[in-house]
Design a protein around this nucleic acid. Sequence first.
DNA 1: CCCGTGACTTCCG
DNA 2: ACGGAAGCCACGG
Length: 110
Amino acid sequence: MKTDKQDFFKKVHRVARLIPEGRVTSYGAIAEYLGAKSSARVVGWAMNAAHGDLSIPAHRVVNRIGMLSGKHHFEGTNLMQQLLESEGVLVKEHQVQNFKEIYWNPCKEL
DNA sequence: CCCGTGACTTCCG
DNA sequence: ACGGAAGCCACGG
């Protein structure tokens, strides 16, 4: 059984679904959990593919500083923020306020 | 096969 | 401390 590159996407999607409500994580954290900490960008790419999968809360995934870097890829402009606030995540200026407090580390939580 | 792009991260000046 | 540049991996053309 050979490991297809697409398997990486599947892994990212799997982890993304595991993100608890009201929590957020970073691309690098997911990448690191998958063993590809150097491929944080690829995680974002996987998220791009997940964009069509409503089962994947991509809005809970932000960059390392808690900024809604991916909001530009969502519909409208504040959809991502709306989803986060709806889950109890405090967001301001497209940035998670208590990011470090609601930060969900898959390496530690899982 | 080579080049460009991308929802990132880290290092160097 | 701030800003710019490079590195990284995968996908599409």
